[in-house]
Design a protein around this nucleic acid. Sequence first.
RNA 1: GCGGCAAUAGCUCAUCUGGUAGAGCACCAGUUUCCCAAACUGGAGGUGGCGGGUUCGAGCCCCGUUUGCCGCUCCA
Length: 489
Amino acid sequence: MTNTKNIFPGLIAHCKEYGFIFPSSEIYEGLQAVYDYGQMGSELKKNIRDHWWKNMTQLHDNIVGIDAAIFMHPTTWKASGHIDNFNDPMIDNKDSKKRYRVDHLIEGFADEQLAAGHEELAKEVLKCMDALLAKDDFTGLKKLIDDNKIKCAISGTCNWTDIRQFNLMFSTEFGSIAATGETDNKVYLRPETAQGIFVNFLNVQKSGRMKIPFGIAQVGKAFRNEIVARQFIFRMREFEQMEMQFFIRPGTQKEWYEYWKAERLKWHLELGIPGNKYRYHDHVKLAHYADAACDIEYEFPFGFKEVEGIHSRTDFDLTQHQEYSKKKMQYFDNDIDVSTGKPFGNYIPYVIETSIGLDRMFLLVMSHAYEEQDLGTPDKPDSRVVLKLPAKLAPIKLAILPLTKKDGLPEIATKIMDACRADFRCFYEEKDSIGKRYRRMDALGTPFCVTIDHQTKEDDTVTIRYRDTMLQERIPITKIRDIVTKEIS
RNA sequence: GCGGCAAUAGCUCAUCUGGUAGAGCACCAGUUUCCCAAACUGGAGGUGGCGGGUUCGAGCCCCGUUUGCCGCUCCA
């Protein structure tokens, strides 16, 4: 860390004080790991979202956007592997405080027995475990652990808690009539947005006459019932993802994976954030669907953490959906394969995914922008808090400040306001000293302030003041709009 | 999930060993002010996170709980 002082607590306080982020339902003591975006935060978040959306859809060939529902058919999550892979029963050792997946604990025991030559026992235990797991019989599984005196590797004791299910997906009742017996009307709140893209692969490909390689982008909320959710908005239970699934010809995944790795990092750097704050982290242990994966990590005030993932998902998802839905997830490729001289023909496309957390990007941008400056001189102590937000992301682009609220200055200011407000977000303020107003705008990250004074009445010029340098210059009123527009586009 | 620390006005913090809750800034209404915060007058704002307990009396002591930060743990 370059900064010796931890700016994180100050940043969190700043977010609340200036209307960026509030704890959810705060008057009721809040809700753990849920946050609301305030009047400034929602603008900044929207600007980040729009910036990503424009970059991915408008500025890339062959990428279109969709907006899928949060509710999806329950089979989606069977096909994706979320139900089978992420509903594992867990058990804690009370002495070591270590938590185990029950199946891992028992399998570990079986391996030990096998190594010790007790082949029969090992087989018997595993058989028993599989039967109990299939029935979700937690009492039986606990008994199996107790009966075999399976010990914790760390504490060496058999002092276990009851077996508990940690379900990372939120569920709710679908339809107004509660489930009765056999009819299960449980639906999940999506734990990732990606599946909304996969299930629409055929719809988009056919209705948009999309030709491989092409991408589908989406921004939306996702929900995960995190066991430990912390570090402000870094890990929330309700969060927003910006994802793009890029469909490609099998065999080309390596080059496209590298392409998107580079392309996505370029997007981050274009915001003016220095490259040494970023690094790639290649996954060694790959998820069940991936043949290559890496994270783009950013040096947050609490260390390097993942902000975006680039995954080579193979044809896992589409194949799974084909199997569960019985719909052919095929693409017919008319391009000629030079090695055979014939078209590539039918295949299930491979997928490269780029997935970035919008809330994490928000925190990244804020972390980078937030600065506590000491402007003191020997005569006078002085300081300011400034958000050096990229101009295109700033919630307010231009503050329009009459130097006094008399002598017709507010009227001129109002005219400037009317001329600009349709093009970008402006803020008018006539209260308090000019210095105080500048500092308030610094704290909100407003890149430009223009001040109307008596000279304005004579020659139609104003003072423009720049946030980062605090320098001022005299410009004609007619140039204001161009200067701001140029910087925010 | 375990451990540590914390919670008093919008913000930052005081209130000495338990004895009527205070300041600065911010805010609101005015005054003043011609270019970088903290000028003047007046005003509003707190059941001290929430719930119990001990005590004649609790912001302060005890228990519980909620939320946050930090260290472990976990993270498709």
